[in-house]
Each structure stands twice: as structure tokens, then as C-alpha cells.
Design a protein around this nucleic acid. Sequence first.
DNA 1: GAGTGGTCTAGACCACACT
DNA 2: GTGTGGTCTAGACCACTCC
Lengths: 257, 257
Amino acid sequence: MQETSKVAPAAAAHDSNGAPAFSPLYQQIKALLTRSLQGGEWVPGQVIPSEKELALRFRVSQGTVRKAIDEMAGDKLLVRRQGKGTFVASHAEASTRYRFLRLTADDGSAPALQRQLLECRRMRASADVVRQLALKPGDPAVQVRRLLLTAQGQPVVLDDLWLPGVLFKGLSAERLLAWEGPLYRLFEVGYSVSMVRAEEKLRAVAASVEEAALLNLPVGAPLLCVERLSLTHGDKPVELRRGLYHTRHHHYRNELS
Amino acid sequence: MQETSKVAPAAAAHDSNGAPAFSPLYQQIKALLTRSLQGGEWVPGQVIPSEKELALRFRVSQGTVRKAIDEMAGDKLLVRRQGKGTFVASHAEASTRYRFLRLTADDGSAPALQRQLLECRRMRASADVVRQLALKPGDPAVQVRRLLLTAQGQPVVLDDLWLPGVLFKGLSAERLLAWEGPLYRLFEVGYSVSMVRAEEKLRAVAASVEEAALLNLPVGAPLLCVERLSLTHGDKPVELRRGLYHTRHHHYRNELS
DNA sequence: GAGTGGTCTAGACCACACT
DNA sequence: GTGTGGTCTAGACCACTCC
């Protein structure tokens, strides 16, 4: 890092590591900030240094830091709060809790579902899980199965999760049962894994005998199958999830633009 | 509009229409630009004036215009092209064609479906259509029914559309059959209706006798039901659409963040 | 009042597209 | 070359939060 001289313009290398970096300055700042998030220098929910301080640290103008943070806020990696500072996004706060769950009651209200853990076991990852989670063949995986039910006890969602065993070492049924709050918050605080974004594939399927029994539905009932691959920083896949949604009184909402 | 004196800071009224406007300047600029889009001053695909010219017109700095345009580009109302100018978004270009269609073949390729028009008729809008399209009771509506099929002729989607009859005066089966290209592009050029954003509700349903016959499936087969409300400027609803997707070889993709 | 993010400005220069 | 959007800077002031 240059210490005294003026920073070179946009197209010039600005890193100290010698790697050519022909990208806008604010993109380089963004990369540096992302690296700090990835490395755990700042953890979810924590304030990051002020724009002025970051501008001094990186020897760029505050406007350049602003632009980097603006984009990261757009990616929901950071959250700006006027007068307070900029915070690392987390799945803990009310506004971002369950932000990946698009299930909505048909009257538009939030679902407010209770959880029922069915299974949590460690296993060798299947070929499909190995592929989607980019594991090595033979790597361990944690499988979790659970139900989400209405307050009246009607099952709505049957969820199956697969997690890389290496990342989620202490995860167990006891740990899951003891945890109150969003699962993704547990992953943040217990395993230092932040879910940053996700890709979903939706299909309509017919309920199998087992699925029908668990969801208290006739065999063959139409179910919305939501297959989700959750990614952390650097687009690294860290969770595969298959949810079967009973959409008689709920639906999956989506906004297009 | 003030002509000579310096523009007042952010929290002051900047409009000439006397309405109090305690919002940032760039938001006011955004509103003015949106009004021009809405009023048809610039049509989809056309260049809008340069940032410098808009800055002169509105008597603000170029940076303020930039911020307004940045947000509108984020909303996909405008498209910036370096060296060329800023353009009104349209559903014509390859990059934005079918941008509301989330259907994907399971191998990840684009679906490339052919259309088969089944019906196009004018009718009195039903109660549900009246409500969702915010019509007046008794208002006319246009209903369109069509199939989307693979190149091999396998039906994949059964689409039902309802449009406000007042806006889509000349729309007919002949007009639809003569049109090549995206439907939403026809709406832009033929009826001056730009689809700006949409809200979708997804469910899994069982195929009815009629639906099964049209989609060449057994009765009761699970189908992905996608109910879409498309909105134009000012969040005015202008299309209600119900698609039934056969998801044996296709799926609905979604990105979460 | 001090510190934070948010807005606005003015000006310089770069990257890109057309001619 | 000219005009467009894209980047970067420096500085002023505003709005919000907390002490």
C-alpha cells in the first residue's frame, strides 16, 4: 500500500500485493471490505469503521468508500443506519429475519410457524449433495429434517437440509432444539457461516406416501417443491435445502422487476 | 421554478407547483423524470437527454441527476449505455426480453417456446378481475388464453391473461397472431402500456379435466400455478395473468438476496 | 456538541461510441 | 474530435443518534 503519494486513477493498480487490478477504485475497496467480512474481522450485527476512517485507511476519498458501501448495501451485505454507522448484515434483526422465506399466508400476513424437528444425523454426502455443495466425495454432511406448522398444528412445510459436515461440526438435534430464533442466525453465531444469497428452483410435485403422511395430506396431493442452494461470501455453497410447501392456504410470493 | 438564484438545499421545496416537497432533490428529479416517462415524452427504446442537459433543465448539478438516474436504472426503468446515452427500458432488446418469465429448462438453457393462441375475447370483467385490476364494475376486459410449447410440440405452459378493455382497444386474435416477439413489446408499441414491475403468487395445484387435456397430462397432475399482477408506472395494475406450468422438465428459478 | 451517514456541488479526468 | 456515461476528488452543509 502506498503511504504518502496520491492514489493513481481508476484504471491503475492500487493494491500492494502486486496483482494487477484494472478495475475501478471503488470495486477494489469493495473487494477489500468483502475480504474483511469473509475473514471475520467484523461479524454480523457489528458496526464497521466509519466512512471517514475507511477513507483514511484506504487512502481514497470518502465518496469512493461511499460508492463501495452503497453497492454492498444493495447486495445486503451491509446495512446503513443514519447517525449510527454501517453494520454487517445479519439474520437476527426483525427486518432481515427469514428474509429468504417467501412463504406467505393467503391473507397476506406473515406465516408465524412453529418448528418440529424430525431428524438430525451425520452421514456421508450423496452424489447429488456432493455436487451441489462442491464437496469432496466421501465428505461428511449433516442432514436435518423438520416440519413447519401453523399455530393450530397444521403442517405446512416439510424441510430437508444438507450442510457440509466440516463447517457444521457441533451441530446436533440438541443444539437445534435449544435454539430459539432463525436457523440462519444460529449458523452465524454458532458456526460463523453467513448466508449471503441463495438460488431457488421451484416445481410442482405429487406428495409421496411418506411426505403425505408427514404433511397430513392424501398421497399425490400437489406440493410446491422449493430447492434452495444457499451461498456465503465468494459464492461458496453452504446449504442445500428442499422444502415441500402445502399451498392450500399459503403461497410463495415473488416480486419481479 | 427558480431561474437564477442558487437552488435551496435538500429539505426545501424545489417545485414550482407550490406543493411542499420535503424530499431530497434527486428524489424530486426522479419524480419529474418518471412523469415524463409516464406521459410518453420519451418512449421505450428511445434515448433521454444527456445528464448535462437534464442538469441544466432542472438547474441542479450533474451529480444530482446522476443519482436520480442511478435509482431509476436500478428499478429497470432506464438503461445506461456508456458512450451512447441513457435509454428508456423496453421489453424489446435481447437482454430484457421475457425478463418476467422465470421458467427455465432443467439443463439451464433458455426455454425457447412457441406460442399457440387458444382464445381472445372481450367480456365484462369478473369480480376478481375487477378487484385486482382496479376496474369499475361492468368495465370491459380482454381475456387471452394460450399455450406455450416446446419445439417438439409438448405443451409446457397454459396461460390465461386479463387486460383492461379500455387500455387495449384494438387487441384481437388477429393482432396477436400477426405479432412476432414478446407480448409485452406489443403492449408497448401497440397500446403504450409499459410493464414496469410485477408481483407473483405461486402455488401447486392439481390439473383439472380441461387443463389436463390442454396440457396433454393426466387429470390431477401437479402443476405450478403462477398468478402474476403486472404494474405500469405509478404501480397501476394493467395485466392479470395466471400461468399453469408443467414442471417435469422445466422449473421456475429465483434468486434471493 | 460530536460523530455518523445523507445530500449537493463543481470540477477534473477516464472509458467508450460514433463520425 | 466530440459527446456520452463512469470514476474520483474535496468540501460544504443537512439529518439523525447519542452523550
